[in-house]
């Protein structure tokens, strides 16, 4: 089953690359210059030998992980608190609904002005962008708790805190995890965007900017391929963790595995 799915996915990707290769080599007019997928892939394979690129990946991933971690530490308790105290949620909700749709990339110029330390500026925008999906998913998770289970525990004499710990938190946990997974993707986008806009000592975005200034579009694309791969890899890891930790959730809700 999984093997067949993998095969189909690989066939799709290969087909896409072949079409791209043919279009670029024969389809577009002679005057246009764009590296073909084979050139990009060749450079992408060679990139790990470039110390500048490796340092960039390390910097970007460190900012990404730190930002995501801070976002989790802030957003999960906040989400649980808001979910547990409905009156508080009603007070804060309008602010949340206003802040959430602001494109996170748009706050980068503001962050450059306000925060004088390079890494802190980048981590801050990552935190800001990752906060919303985690917070909102935690909130949804808290709303989704089975009222019968809560009532049952209450009728057995359990206190509010006990109900929260024994029913609400485990029930909301899979939602939190989904929020973290969504946030991880957004965090990577912000990590690279901040580097593209603000520059820096190193980073995938800094590398892309440098390659562009040197007229190396092939390297720009190769680094972009790596950014995409890292995003896929992070998503796969988190998804696997989610399946492992919360397999019971899928069983309970009857979602296909």
């Amino acid at each position: 089953m999984t093997g067949a799915r993998l095969l189909r996915g690989a066939a799709g990707a290969a087909g896409f690359l072949v079409v791209g290769e043919l279009v670029i080599r024969f389809g577009i007019s002679d005057g246009l210059v764009f590296p073909a997928p084979s050139t990009i892939l060749y450079e992408a394979v060679r990139l790990p030998a470039d110390p500048q690129f490796l340092a960039g990946v390390a910097t970007t991933m460190a900012n990404w992980a730190l930002g995501l971690l801070i976002a989790i530490v802030v957003a999960v308790p906040l989400g649980v608190l808001l979910g547990a105290v409905p009156s508080l949620e009603r007070t804060v909700r309008p602010i949340l609904e206003f802040m959430r749709p602001i494109p996170s990339v748009a706050i980068i110029p503001l962050a450059i002005l306000l925060i004088s330390m390079e890494q802190m500026m980048k981590v801050s925008v990552i935190v800001y962008a990752s906060l919303w999906p985690i917070l909102l998913n935690t909130l949804y998770g808290m709303h989704d708790v089975d009222p019968v289970a809560k009532e049952s525990l209450r009728s057995f004499g359990f206190g509010k805190l006990s109900v929260l710990i024994r029913v609400s938190l485990p029930s909301a946990a899979p939602f939190v995890m989904t929020g973290v997974r969504i946030a991880a993707g957004i965090a990577l986008v912000l990590a690279v965007s901040a580097e593209l806009l603000a520059g820096g000592v190193s980073g995938i975005g800094v590398f892309v900017g440098t390659a562009g200034s040197g007229n190396r579009v092939d390297l720009v694309m190769a680094a972009t391929v790596w950014a995409g791969l890292l995003g896929v890899l992070a998503n796969m890891l988190l998804l696997a963790g989610e399946r492992r930790l919360f397999h019971w959730h899928k069983v309970r809700t009857g979602a296909p595995s």
Partner: peptide
């Protein structure tokens, strides 16, 4: 810098404040 830090602490998100003005760089 101090003023900046105040502006920052008052600023938009908990996150910005949490990651802090007392940076070590």
């Amino acid at each position: 810098r101090k003023l900046r830090c105040h502006a920052l602490a008052l600023g938009v998100t908990v996150a910005l404040a949490l990651s802090g003005c007392g940076g070590s760089d």
